[in-house]
Simulated assay, not measured.
Amino acid sequence: MTDPTPPHPDRRAEIAAGLARVRARITDACAAAGRDRAEVTMIAVTKTYPAGDVLALAGLGVVDVGENRDQEASGKAAEVAAAGARPRWHFIGQLQRNKCRSVVRYADVVHSVDSARLADALGAAAERERDRPLETLVQVSIDGDPARGGALPDSTDPDRGLHRVAEAVAGAASLRLAGLMAVAPLGWEPERAFARLAEVAEAFRTVHPRATALSAGMSGDLEIAIGYGATHVRVGSALLGMRPTLR
């Protein structure tokens, strides 16, 4: 394996400028919501961007990095590690059971568990591959549409019901239930989506009081998400610029 190519100075300056803008937005959103800035973690979503960009972010003090596809993330994480950087990797994309063993080898946090069967598979993989529990968030469906990803609030479905999924995560010694993740549904205004998510999260914490993480909000709507209690915002294009075309 070769070390990743360091970013050109112009690219590093571009990333630094994007980072400054996003950090300012988060600071302003926290102030507007009356929240402590330390309550909100920015995850730099680096899917399709090269490992060199991850190294530039690490050099600028970014700790948390998010990826969506194991096929890309596993190799990128290895490249970044070979170059001496150790960011905290968040797997935030749709996760298939047959990818669990690979993902648990590099991910520090998984945001996208949405079924009891997936929780069981992830727990089994983490048991084999890790020496410490894997931070795990349950992806929740805001609109309750079973055709989309996300565990279903107010459902008793044995595989997809939100509390059944949470119980499967909490019951695995190799996983730690950290909280919830959601994506605003297509066609929903962010205000409506995150207001609904806040209701779900409040009810969820009455059952799982230590699962306080709430991963919500992206480049276009992070301020609204923070206003409704997001503790983690997932930022890609606002930070790194126009996304390269997927191969």
Rank of each mutant, 00 (worst) to 15 (best):
R132Q: 08
P133M: 06
D131V: 10
P87R: 05
A125E: 06
E79C: 07
K76C: 05
A81V: 03
N98K: 14
V104Q: 02
V140P: 00
R160W: 12
R117Y: 07
P158T: 11
D159P: 00
S115V: 09
R117H: 13
D159K: 06
R130A: 01
Q139T: 00
E127D: 08
S155R: 11
G93S: 11
D131H: 10
A82R: 15
A119V: 01
G75F: 07
T156Y: 04
R88Y: 14
G161Y: 14
D114G: 11
G84E: 01
A78D: 09
N98L: 05
Y106V: 01
S102K: 15
E127G: 00
D120H: 14
A126T: 05
V140N: 03
A73P: 00
E79S: 14
N98T: 12
L152R: 04
G150M: 12
R105S: 03
A116E: 07
G161L: 11
D143C: 04
A77G: 01
D159I: 05
D114N: 13
T156H: 13
E129V: 07
H111E: 15
D159W: 07
E79Q: 15
S115M: 06
Q139I: 03
R160L: 13
P87K: 00
V109H: 06
V103L: 11
A125V: 05
A85D: 00
W89V: 02
L152P: 00
A83N: 04
A116L: 11
I92V: 15
K99C: 12
Q139G: 01
A116R: 15
C100M: 10
T136M: 08
V138W: 07
E72R: 02
S155P: 02
A83C: 05
D154H: 14
N98E: 05
A151V: 12
Q96T: 09
G123Q: 13
R117D: 15
Q94E: 09
L137I: 10
V109Q: 09
A85G: 12
V109G: 01
K76T: 03
I142H: 11
S141Y: 12
G161R: 05
D159N: 15
A73C: 07
A151M: 08
R101N: 08
I142M: 09
V140K: 05
V113R: 09
A82M: 02
G75E: 13
S74I: 13
T136N: 07
D108T: 00
D159R: 12
P146S: 06
L118S: 10
V110N: 05
A83P: 03
V103F: 11
D145C: 08
R130L: 03
A73N: 01
A78K: 10
I142G: 04
A107M: 00
V103N: 04
R160A: 12
P133Y: 10
E135I: 14
Q139R: 06
V109W: 11
P146M: 10
L95E: 03
S141D: 02
R160D: 07
P133N: 00
P146R: 13
A77W: 13
H90A: 02
D143L: 08
D131K: 11
R128W: 06
R130C: 03
C100P: 04
L137K: 02
C100L: 14
R117C: 01
A107Q: 03
L134P: 01
A73I: 04
R132C: 03
A83F: 14
D120V: 14
S141P: 01
V109D: 03
L122Y: 13
L118K: 11
